[in-house]
Amino acid sequence: MRGLGIALLLVGLLWILQGAGLVGGSFMTGQRRWLLIGIVTAALGAAVLGRGMRRPGR
C-alpha cells in the first residue's frame, strides 16, 4: 500500500505542477483541469500513504 500511496502522491504533484504551468512539454501544461485532478490524486495518495504508515508492516 505504501508504494501505491507514494506513486499517487508523486503523479499528483507532477500533474499539479503541469496544471499550474510550472512544468512544460505536455498537453496538460497550463490546464486548470489537470491542476484539480492533480490535487485530488495527491490527496488520495497522501491518504493511502497515511493509512499504510499506520498499519504494521506485513
Rank of each mutant, 00 (worst) to 15 (best):
M1G: 11
M1Y: 07
M1K: 08
R2D: 13
R2V: 08
G3M: 04
G3Q: 08
L4T: 03
L4E: 02
L4P: 01
G5Q: 08
G5W: 05
G5L: 01
G5C: 06
G5S: 03
I6T: 12
A7I: 05
L8D: 03
L9E: 03
L10P: 03
L10I: 07
V11P: 02
V11H: 10
V11W: 12
G12N: 04
L13N: 13
L14T: 08
L14V: 15
W15A: 13
L17T: 10
L17G: 05
L17N: 05
Q18D: 02
Q18S: 06
Q18P: 08
Q18E: 13
Q18V: 10
G19K: 03
G19Y: 05
A20S: 11
A20M: 14
G21I: 04
L22M: 12
L22D: 12
V23A: 08
V23L: 07
G24K: 09
G24I: 10
G25W: 07
G25N: 09
G25Q: 09
G25K: 04
S26M: 06
S26A: 10
S26G: 04
F27S: 11
M28P: 10
M28Q: 11
M28R: 13
G30L: 00
G30A: 04
Q31F: 00
Q31I: 03
R32S: 04
R32F: 07
R32H: 06
R33A: 04
R33N: 07
R33Q: 08
W34L: 02
L36H: 04
L36R: 01
L36K: 05
I37A: 06
I37E: 06
G38A: 01
G38L: 01
I39V: 08
V40S: 03
T41N: 01
T41K: 00
A42N: 00
A42T: 07
A43Y: 05
A43E: 05
A43H: 06
L44D: 03
G45K: 02
G45N: 02
G45R: 01
A46W: 02
A46Q: 04
A47F: 13
A47G: 06
A47L: 14
A47K: 07
V48F: 06
V48R: 11
L49I: 03
L49D: 10
L49V: 09
L49P: 03
G50F: 09
G50D: 12
R51Q: 15
R51I: 14
R51D: 13
R51T: 12
G52R: 05
G52W: 11
G52A: 14
G52T: 06
M53F: 14
M53N: 12
R54C: 11
R54F: 14
R54K: 14
R54E: 12
R54N: 13
R55G: 13
P56G: 15
P56N: 14
G57M: 15
R58H: 13
R58G: 14
R58M: 13
R58A: 15
